Simulated scan of single mutants.
Amino acid sequence: MTQPRRVVCWRHGQTDWNAEKRFQGHTDIPLNDTGRAQAEHAARLLSALRPDAIVASDLRRAADTAAALSRRTGLPVEHDKGLRERSGGLWEGLTGAEIRERWPEEHARWEIPEGEDLAAVAERVAEAVLRHLAAVPEGGVLVVASHGAALRAGIAHLLGLPAEHRDALGPLDNCAWSVLGPRRHDGDGWRLLEHNAGTLPAEPQLSDDR
């Protein structure tokens, strides 16, 4: 029997813009001191999973988060633009209050002026995850360091959730992660094993709901 592979979808640590509740998008904001400490703490936990590969968005906040795990495991980090956050268009750099004041209708629908379509984000993130997972051996673990909105969209796409049900996935906190595994041992489809976790993921258990 083949051993299932797992994907750990890990959001980056805190930045000053996170603390200020500013929309970051593609703006390349670094981790702050809290974010660097979060990354080191999470890396200590995730290194116990003995990951086989690490891939990260090329934006610094995700790349530097992944680097903390690289230092502990000795694994190199591959950087992939396909894992970038959703482009925030005219909202980048603005706080949530500023966005609601200037674009109340668009904010209610979460339609970003001059921003990236969420369906396109979901497709590119899922494609990047699957591309890097192809190089991971049976029973292996891929750690993907990326961004909150991008990861939620990619996870929903991999799970096959329709667009109107994407909000069923709650947000990812800074430096929290979600874990995906195959729905069946033949690798057909995906299931969500853990979401917004901050403790070491449990070993997958056999169950009668396969």
Rank of each mutant, 00 (worst) to 15 (best):
Glu106Leu: 12
Val125Arg: 01
Glu127His: 09
Arg210Val: 12
Gly160Thr: 08
Arg131Thr: 12
Ala56Asp: 01
Arg11Asp: 10
Lys81Tyr: 02
Arg60Lys: 14
Phe23Arg: 07
Leu83Lys: 00
Asp173Arg: 15
Glu164Ala: 14
Glu123Ala: 14
Pro182Val: 01
Glu123Met: 07
Ala126Thr: 07
Pro137Trp: 11
Trp103Arg: 07
Leu83Ile: 09
Ser87Ile: 03
Arg124Leu: 01
Lys81Asp: 02
Asn32Lys: 09
Gly181Tyr: 01
Ala197Pro: 08
Pro4Leu: 11
Gln24Ser: 08
Arg71Gly: 09
Arg124Phe: 03
Asp188Trp: 11
Arg22Pro: 08
Ser47Arg: 15
Ala43Met: 04
Leu193His: 03
Ala135Met: 03
Ala43Ile: 08
Leu142His: 04
Ile155Gly: 00
Glu116Val: 05
Asp58Tyr: 00
Ala176Leu: 01
Asp52Lys: 04
Arg11Leu: 10
Asp64Tyr: 01
Thr2Lys: 15
Gly93Leu: 11
Glu85Val: 06
Ala53Trp: 04
Arg22Asn: 09
Asp167Gly: 13
Ala149Phe: 10
His26Asn: 10
Val77Ile: 02
Gly160Trp: 09
His165Asp: 14
Glu106Gln: 15
Arg131Lys: 15
Val77Thr: 15
Glu92Ile: 03
Leu46Gly: 01
Pro182Tyr: 03
His185Leu: 14
Arg131Asp: 10
Arg84Met: 00
Arg84Thr: 02
Ala134Phe: 09
Leu59Val: 05
Gly96Asn: 14
Ala39Lys: 05
Ser57Met: 02
Arg5Pro: 01
Pro30Ala: 08
Ala42Thr: 15
Gly89Cys: 06
Asp186Ser: 14
Gly181Ser: 05
Gly148Arg: 10
Ala126Met: 05
His132Tyr: 06
Gly88Asp: 01
Val143Met: 03
Thr199Met: 02
Gly96Ile: 14
Thr34Arg: 12
Arg166Tyr: 13
Ile99Arg: 07
Arg50Val: 03
Pro104Ile: 11
Asp167Trp: 14
Ser70Met: 04
Ile54Trp: 06
Gly35Arg: 06
Ala37Leu: 12
Gly148Trp: 05
Pro76Thr: 08
His26Thr: 12
Asp209Trp: 06
Ala97Ile: 09
Ser57Cys: 05
Pro204Glu: 06
Glu114Met: 06
